[in-house]
Computed example of a mutant assay.
Amino acid sequence: MKVTQAELTISAAKPDQFPKNPAPEIALSGRSNVGKSSLINTLLARKGLARTSQRPGKTQTLNYYWINDRFHFVDVPGYGYAKVSKKEREAWGRVMETYFQEREQLKAVVQLIDARHEPTEDDIMMYDWLKYHELPVIVIGTKADKVPKNKWDTHKKKIREALELEEEDPLLLFSSETGYGKDKAWSHIQRALFDS
């Protein structure tokens, strides 16, 4: 995928701010600090488009990126971060539920998991929740450059087993440092956007 145009168009804090545009969307989900902004910047070949935050859990809106005048990436708030009040978490939870359950433009969810570690309870819960709502999921193990190459298969196996990954959901490793996995990620994303 050659990205010729990419811009942040809106940061939506509530459902009535979601764009009315009928174009297809891919949501990007993952724990705070898993490397979501780095993945977005790498895929879009833009250095600082998605802001990497020094404070995990800072993204509290759904950030819409309009790409090639054809589709949106939607960066959803990171989960599993404790320093946010219960009330705030519940408020985001409601917005996210509305988005995942009712957004007809949503074609698939890219779920990011830190490839260095086994999936957390939050990772497993999120995957189960997405599958409960019958959403296609593309699982991407981030920070692959921090895992020795000869252990990649072992780490993928651990992710697959912990999530009880469904057969139709792809799992790939990715590194924003080296760009490894970028083409593979794009091919799955394109398929989800335009073949479904």
Rank of each mutant, 00 (worst) to 15 (best):
A6T: 06
E7M: 10
E7S: 12
I10D: 02
A12H: 03
K14D: 03
P15H: 05
D16Y: 11
Q17S: 04
P19H: 06
N21I: 10
P22V: 07
A23T: 11
I26W: 02
I26S: 03
S32T: 05
N33C: 03
G35S: 10
G35H: 07
N41M: 04
A45W: 00
G48V: 00
A50D: 01
A50M: 03
T52I: 08
S53T: 14
R55C: 00
K58I: 04
T59N: 05
N63S: 08
Y64G: 00
Y65Q: 04
I67S: 09
D69E: 15
D69P: 03
R70L: 13
F71N: 11
H72S: 12
H72P: 07
D75T: 11
A82F: 05
A82K: 06
V84Y: 01
S85N: 05
K86V: 09
E90D: 11
E97T: 12
E97L: 09
Y99D: 11
F100Y: 15
F100R: 06
E102I: 00
R103G: 05
R103S: 09
K107Y: 07
V110D: 02
Q111A: 05
I113D: 06
T120F: 01
E121G: 14
D122S: 08
D128A: 15
L130I: 09
E134R: 15
V139E: 10
I140R: 03
G141E: 07
G141R: 12
G141M: 15
T142W: 15
A144M: 14
A144D: 02
D145E: 14
D145A: 01
V147G: 06
P148N: 00
P148R: 02
K151Y: 08
W152N: 06
D153E: 14
H155T: 00
K157M: 13
K157D: 15
K158I: 09
I159R: 07
E161S: 14
E164D: 13
L165N: 04
E167V: 11
E167C: 01
F174K: 10
E177D: 13
E177Y: 07
E177V: 13
D183P: 00
D183V: 09
K184I: 09
K184C: 01
H188W: 14
I189M: 07
L193M: 07
D195K: 11
